[in-house]
Amino acid sequence: MMQSLLIAIKNKYPKAKIDVIANKLCLPLAEFMPQINQVIELNTQHGKFDFNKRKILGKSLKGKYDLAIILPITWKSALVPFFANIPERIGFLGEMRFGLINNKIKLNKQKTPLMVDRYLLMLSQKITKDLYPKFNINTQIIQKSVALCPGASYGPAKKWPVEYFYELAEKLTNKGYLCFIFGSQAEKKDADKIKNNNPKITNYVGKLTLKESIKKMSEMEIIISNDSGLMHIASALNKKVIAIFGSSTPKHTPPLNDKAIILQTDEKCRPCFAKTCRFDHYNCLKNISVSDILKVI
């Protein structure tokens, strides 16, 4: 979704050079975003404050930039631009970042439910189709290929049941489709259950880098995914994405793609945005059936 903001910046300021500060996990994404001039790695551990590392990096960037746009709302995320002494530092006030942010953007979450629109508030814009993220990769499409993305690092309340993915894969391969499973090492156990020695299923989980996964996903005809990072990558690849929403909602983080098909239930308790189901029934996911998926393929 950040790419929508990058496109908007380039549209408004064609000569602007855009550098992005990102952690190691996100670095491969930059290769598919031509709007980015360079990526500066923030060598910190997830969840760690690492004040000194942020200070050192910030001071090394002094005098190099006119403007910083800070998308996260955390206090620590504003430290590098502050220590870099960048004249204009735009962002939401967030965690009481007085002084760190000197151009504060007001956020009304009810009026701006879409995350991508919150990013675009930095330029006082809203999402339009010309700002949809897009990864341009020249590739050969594998006929009757379906990518399965069973993971969601957020938590189980975003994960369609693995037994449903298994049943879906069996029915698809019986219909002549080839299935390919994508995800991180964390999904290996689930991926092995889905694969179940089926020769028409290729299991890439834990075997590819993020960059390699993106290139392989670009060869797919259809991508079936939980609401996850891979769903947004599939959308940026302009694929037919079948997106499964559990505790979250497409009113907040939809796949930005005209080909996308969204599946969700009308459970009264959703969207709750919880990582786990407080009722322990997960009906928002279980009530999306395999046949619901097959109907829209």
Rank of each mutant, 00 (worst) to 15 (best):
I223V: 12
L121G: 11
W160S: 03
L294F: 02
T202M: 10
A157F: 11
L71F: 05
T253M: 09
D66P: 06
C149D: 06
F245M: 05
A68V: 09
D266I: 05
N102I: 01
Y177V: 09
E267W: 00
K55Q: 12
F182I: 07
R89N: 01
H281R: 05
G229P: 15
K268D: 12
P28W: 09
F273A: 09
L210R: 03
D258S: 14
V241K: 09
Q45E: 15
C272T: 06
N138M: 10
A30K: 14
R118H: 12
D50K: 05
F51W: 12
N11G: 06
P271S: 00
L237R: 02
L178W: 08
F135D: 13
N85C: 07
T139F: 02
D258A: 09
L148E: 10
A243G: 03
N138L: 12
I293H: 09
F49H: 09
L6T: 03
S60T: 11
K59T: 12
V39N: 07
L100H: 01
L71E: 07
Y164K: 08
I242Q: 12
A84V: 00
R89E: 01
L256A: 04
M220P: 03
L67V: 12
M231H: 12
N238S: 12
V290M: 04
F83P: 08
D117P: 11
K159P: 04
K53Q: 13
K24G: 10
K215Y: 07
K215A: 09
Y154W: 13
K195Y: 06
N238V: 05
K109L: 11
R278W: 08
I90R: 11
G183Q: 06
S145F: 00
M2R: 11
M220K: 04
N257K: 04
I242S: 13
K134L: 08
L131G: 08
E219L: 06
C272F: 08
T253K: 04
E221H: 09
Y166I: 10
G155W: 02
D190V: 03
Q264C: 00
C284K: 01
V296Q: 15
G63F: 10
V39C: 11
P199K: 01
I262A: 01
D190Y: 13
S235I: 08
Q38K: 15
L25S: 14
L121S: 14
P113S: 11
T249F: 10
L100I: 00
D50R: 03
R97M: 01
N43C: 03
I18T: 02
K188D: 07
M2A: 13
K59Y: 08
G176A: 07
V241Q: 09
N103G: 03
V146C: 01
F182N: 07
K12T: 09
I262V: 15
I137M: 07
M2Y: 14
N136L: 11
N203Y: 02
H46L: 13
K53S: 13
K53L: 10
N108S: 14
Q3S: 03
T74W: 08
I181L: 15
P87Q: 05
I261A: 00
A78D: 08
E212M: 00
N11R: 11
V146T: 04
A147H: 06
T173A: 06
I223H: 07
S124D: 15
P250L: 06
W75L: 04
N85M: 10
L61H: 01
L67K: 13
K104T: 15
D190T: 00
D292R: 02
C149Q: 02
K251N: 14
K171Q: 14
S225I: 05
G63K: 12
